[in-house]
């Protein structure tokens, strides 16, 4: 355990370094101590909120990936597999098409959040049978809904000649450029809440991974624990999609990377996957806005480009699943 604490400490230090670098570096370097007014404005009202949003999103994705792989007992599970993101995109598109602007500049995030929670609810109901949530049912219901919603979205995009809708939906493929302070409080609330809830149930998750009978014998109610963990995954994913759309890779592969580093104990894994996700997205966003200024590249592409080689390296180097 002491070893794990030390390693989480290392990840935390790395997180701090990457965060600072992402604020100071960019299309141009800014020295916070000698900054002119324009640079100071860039630092505080553009880069700082953007890096915080990147951290929050990355943390939400990393943690929910770790939890989901546990409750579904499936190493291929990621937060988007439950259809939550497709539901979010569809709901945002409907909001835009309906011309609803009740929430001002929050319209898209709010619709995405509602859509994500709604989809999570449907998946939960579909996964429910005989007084509990079953992992296989949950997974298949999520995959089914995901196909349905993304096809409906594609249909809307194909038959609509509304250029505005197409441009507005670019956002869903991962965009952090519009992040400002106003989105941080609610993001922080749901993401901190979700991580705290899942971290508190980490011991139960450990038991669930070994099987329902085992969990039961240790005094955990498998269905109740799974339900609570599922709620936390739903909150985390919904909040992250509504902050900045869909960013792939993190939810799927960061938990595996952290398993190599920390081990499979969920108590350390959830926390370290959150931190690792935050580090990776923050770094990817830094690169995406820095390498081709003044143009910005989608951060989701960069996460996979820098993450995958490292993941493949680990896969060759270490033992996976005891092989």
């Amino acid at each position: 355990m002491k070893n794990i604490t030390l390693r989480i400490g290392i990840v935390l230090v790395l997180l701090a370094v990457v965060f600072l670098a992402s604020v100071v570096a960019g299309p141009r370097m800014i020295n916070p101590f000698t900054a002119d007014p324009i640079s100071r404005e860039i630092l505080f009202s553009i880069r700082a909120p953007r890096s915080i949003v990147a951290l929050l999103m990355g943390m939400a994705l990393g943690a929910s990936g770790a939890v989901l792989q546990g409750i579904l007992r499936n190493p291929l599970a990621d937060p988007y597999i439950l259809g939550i993101s497709s539901g979010a995109s569809l709901s945002a598109a409907l909001g835009i098409l309906g011309g609803l602007s009740i929430f001002g500049s929050f319209t898209i995030p709010v619709f995405a959040f509602i859509g994500a929670l709604f989809t999570g609810g449907i998946v939960g109901v579909m996964g429910w049978k005989r007084g509990g949530i079953w992992p296989e049912r949950l997974l298949l219901a999520g995959v089914g809904l995901s196909f349905l919603f993304s096809s409906l979205l594609m249909l809307m995009m194909t038959i609509s000649s509304d250029e505005g809708l197409r441009k507005a939906m670019l956002w869903i493929f991962g965009d952090l450029s519009m992040s400002d302070w106003s989105r941080i409080p609610y993001g922080l609330f749901f993401i901190a809440g979700g991580i705290a809830l899942s971290a508190m149930r980490a011991r139960a998750l450990n038991a669930l991974i070994l099987g329902d009978e085992f969990a039961y014998s240790l005094g955990f109610s498998p269905h109740r624990e799974r339900g609570m963990l599922f709620v936390s995954v739903g909150l985390l994913t919904a909040a992250s999609v509504s902050l900045g759309g869909m960013i792939g890779f993190i939810g799927l592969l960061v938990p595996h990377m952290m398993r190599f580093f920390i081990g499979s104990d969920s108590r350390g894994l959830i926390l370290s996957s959150a931190l690792g996700g935050g580090i990776l997205l923050c770094l990817a966003d830094l690169i995406s806005r820095t390498i081709m200024p003044p143009m910005e590249l989608p951060a989701g592409i960069i996460t996979a480009i820098i993450g995958s080689p490292y993941f493949l390296y680990l896969l060759r180097k270490k033992n996976v699943l005891g092989v």
């Binding site: 960019g26 860039i42 553009i46 509304d162 250029e163 806005r289 003044p294 143009m295």
Partner: peptide
């Protein structure tokens, strides 16, 4: 291109045109 907001602050345009679109 998808453009960097901080570069707009730096390059300080004298005039901004916004093309009319949906919403």
């Amino acid at each position: 291109p998808k453009y960097s907001i901080e570069e707009i602050l730096r390059r300080a345009p004298d005039i901004i045109f916004i093309g009319k679109g949906n919403g």
